[in-house]
Design a protein around this nucleic acid. Structure first.
Lengths: 292, 292
DNA sequence: CGCTTTTCGTAATCATCACTACAGGATTTT
DNA sequence: AAAATCCTGTAGTGATGATTACGAAAAGCG
């Protein structure tokens, strides 16, 4: 009659059980595990048939997973889930916090900040700018040059990586300024220079951007909330929030913009890029290097 | 498949339904109602037989109560209870709400997906793994090798970029497999190989990871929800959700993990890395290249 | 490239469940 | 106090659920 208050480490939480055994799970089991974890296990309270449909696996798979976790069968697992949820409902707040990291763990504070950054970045985002840039990047006649700073080099590279596959005429500007003069030769009218410059703005970048504009190129700038000096040269500017509880800035909001742009450009250039991609995959499939 | 988000006052809460009808309930029904209310309705998720036992009433009583509340039968009531509990369990984490969540604009749909990815990635994240890896990466005696695949190369580079500044002994493995044999020479005990491998898993990466383990290195893997074959070699695994409305996968959740790790490693290695950073900044300040 | 092993779903079987019909018993009404 | 009404549980039935056995397909291995 009396419910025993569980010591913190009493019954193993199914959540943790799932995470722990994750490695030994098969593909289908992992799919199921994902569905369970998604809704804080609530999905596991349905009948085995419904759960199977929801997870797109067969009912035996569910039973096998239950057994793997150490339960007798599905009903046994279901009881455990109910108990766990009941326990969590007792102290709604206290228990939830352990589950969803709300503590002082960095990952929590960090995510909160990132979430905030993304929201604010999107609030400030001008959809017209987004569309205009997407349009510009989709024009196969245009030549695209990507340039990043010390930290944002990776972002430029990431963008380059995708654009290069989707369309022709994409170039990654080398990071060492000594070769920039040559790169400038290619930037004339019909060229777009995509620059990344967040705080601890780099003079050299602005210099190059200015010269590119003089040469007739258009500049698209990704910067932070405060705005890099390159803004004056830029035809289009994206301002992203970058502050997080770290000594470093977060470029996640910038990456979000990049990924969204890639998706959009991909869509617009669908036909031609489809060919490029399949051609590329053929090439990759053909060359099986390092097959010792 | 997809749970529709209920408007705040959409479905009448069963709790309230019960209180409302309390007056018209019979003795046995009231006994049942009490049991239900006790455990925040969780008791109602058992089979009708068990619930009957728990409430010390008969099964027909349960059905009659369900009907009185306006439900078709017991399963119908049970579904409502599950939905209600699911709603209450919804992640307390800050929801990333776009300014225009309703628009079909890609950026909206994209952000929604990313937000979901991040939440689900964190749900699955094992904090112990995070801490263990942070600890490992903070050990200045360890040698760190970073390796990415076709797409994830940029992520590896981003991680490398930061780690390199924070601590000594960080290496980025070249992307061309032809030079991997040399790289392998450096990977012995005391080395950590950090691999990124998301779907369209690359055989070559697994090959290298396997050899690295044989040589005595430890492997840390960043992969997607399905799990790269490298998992078997890995001492620590991070699984991130990567699906977005795009032909491409999103590595944002992976980047979040990376940034959080950087923040943590930075903190742990605070003293020594502070020196490194200021030394680096001095160097950057001193060499004013490209100042035409 | 063929073999073995593992994984996964289909289909058949068995158990349990939700529900209905009915009747004993309590409560109320006249 | 007798009759009618309402409440409640027992028992039985159809339906759904959980489980097992088996075979196809995929993955791993030599």
């Amino acid at each position: 009659m009396y419910e025993k208050e569980q010591p913190l480490d009493g019954p193993p939480l199914i959540r943790d059980l799932l995470k722990e055994k994750q490695a030994e799970l098969t593909a289908a089991e992992r799919k199921l595990s994902a569905v369970l974890l998604d809704d804080s296990l609530v999905a596991g309270l349905q009948s085995i048939t419904r759960l199977a449909e929801a997870a797109e696996v067969s009912t035996p798979t569910i039973i096998r997973l239950a057994r793997k976790l150490g339960f007798d069968g599905f009903p046994d697992l279901q009881n455990a889930i109910r108990d766990e949820i009941a326990a969590r409902m007792k102290r709604p707040l206290a228990k939830l916090e352990t589950a969803a990291p709300e503590g002082d763990h960095i990952i929590s504070r960090f995510t909160a900040a990132v979430s905030d950054n993304i929201n604010r970045t999107l609030d400030r985002l001008d959809l017209a700018t987004f569309d205009a840039v997407a349009e510009m990047l989709s024009d196969p006649a245009r030549r695209l040059h990507l340039l990043g700073g010390r930290i944002t080099r990776s972002n430029a590279h990431y963008f380059f990586n995708h654009l290069q596959i989707i369309r022709p005429g994409v170039l990654l500007v080398d990071s060492s300024p000594s070769v920039w003069p040559q790169a400038l030769l290619d930037m004339g009218p019909g060229s777009t220079l995509i620059v990344f410059d967040i705080r601890r703005y780099e003079r050299e970048l602005e210099k190059l951007a200015g010269l590119a504009v003089q040469a007739g190129a258009e500049v698209v700038l990704f910067t932070d909330a405060w705005g890099s000096p390159i803004e004056r040269h830029a035809a289009h500017v994206f301002r992203a929030m970058v502050e997080v509880p770290s000594s470093w800035d977060s470029t996640l909001a910038i990456n979000l913009l990049i990924e969204a742009l890639v998706a959009e450009v991909q869509t617009r250039a669908a036909t031609s890029s489809a060919e490029r991609i399949s051609a590329l995959e053929d090439m990759i499939g053909a060359s099986k290097i390092f097959r010792g």
